[in-house]
C-alpha cells in the first residue's frame, strides 16, 4: 500500500506512520517501532476496539439460549432447534432449505454442537482480539447461515443481519484485534518467528 495522507481529520499527527505498509513480511518489520496503525488517531483506534469487544460480547451472550445436550429438541420445540426449523417452515433459499431438511435436522445434535463451538470461539477470540481477521471472516459466514435460516421467520428484521455482516466486514478491514487486543501485542513476536504457526497468526490477525 502506498503512503497515505492522514493529515485531514487527524487529531494526533505524531501517531501516524506515513510510510505504513500492509505487507506482513517479517523483513519489513522494525522491531523497535510501534505497530503500523490502519487507523490514524487514538479515538479511531479506541472506537474500533470498543466495536470489536461489543461484537464479541454479542456472540458470547447469545450462547445462553443454546442449551446442550438437546438444544431445544422436544415437544414443543424451542431454542436452537425451533430456530433451525424456520429454515424449512419459512424458506429463504430452496437449496439451503433442502440441506437443512435432509441433512441438518436428521442429525441435529451434531450440527448444534458445531454451532455452539463456532459461536463460542467467535465470542472468545473477537472479545480478546486474537486472530481477529480470521474470526471476522468466520463471523460473516455464520451470519449468512443465520440469515438463510431465520430471515423470513416472524418478527425478524433484515437489517439486524445486514448490520452484523457490515460490522464483521469492518472488523476484518481494520484488523481490529491490533487495537487494545492481543493481536496488537503479539504480532511483533509472531513476525519475528520463523515457525509456521506464528506466521499463520500474522496473516490471521
Amino acid at each position: 500500500m502506498a503512503s497515505t495522507d492522514y493529515v485531514a481529520g487527524t487529531d494526533n499527527p505524531t501517531d501516524v506512520d506515513y510510510t505504513a505498509s500492509t505487507n506482513d513480511d517479517a523483513t519489513d518489520t522494525d522491531d523497535t517501532a510501534p505497530p503500523d496503525p490502519f487507523l490514524p488517531s487514538r479515538i479511531d483506534r479506541a472506537a474500533i476496539a470498543v466495536v470489536r469487544v461489543g461484537v464479541g460480547l454479542l456472540w458470547l451472550q447469545n450462547l445462553g439460549w443454546k442449551i446442550p445436550p438437546n438444544f431445544g429438541q422436544g415437544d414443543p420445540p424451542e431454542g436452537l432447534y425451533l430456530s433451525t426449523t424456520y429454515a424449512v417452515s419459512h424458506e429463504v433459499l430452496h437449496p439451503y432449505t433442502w440441506l437443512v431438511e435432509q441433512v441438518v435436522l436428521p442429525n441435529f445434535t451434531i450440527f448444534a454442537w458445531i454451532v455452539l463451538l463456532v459461536e463460542a470461539s467467535l465470542g472468545a477470540f473477537l472479545t480478546f482480539g486474537l486472530a481477529t481477521r480470521f474470526w471476522a471472516l468466520v463471523g460473516i459466514a455464520q451470519t449468512v447461515v443465520i440469515m438463510l435460516t431465520v430471515l423470513n421467520a416472524p418478527n425478524e428484521w433484515i437489517w439486524s443481519y445486514l448490520l452484523m455482516l457490515l460490522v464483521h466486514a469492518a472488523l476484518f478491514a481494520t484488523a481490529a484485534g491490533r487495537y487494545a487486543g492481543l493481536d496488537g501485542v503479539l504480532r511483533p513476536e509472531w513476525q519475528r518467528s520463523r515457525s509456521w504457526l506464528p506466521r499463520l497468526l500474522v496473516r490471521a490477525s
Partner: peptide, 21 residues
C-alpha cells in the same frame, strides 16, 4: 452455561498465547 465456556476459552487461549512467547 455456554457463555461461561466461551469467556474462559478466550482467557485461556489468550494467556497461553502470551505465555508461549
Amino acid at each position: 452455561n455456554a457463555s461461561t465456556f466461551s469467556l474462559w476459552l478466550g482467557l485461556g487461549f489468550g494467556l497461553i498465547a502470551i505465555g508461549m512467547v
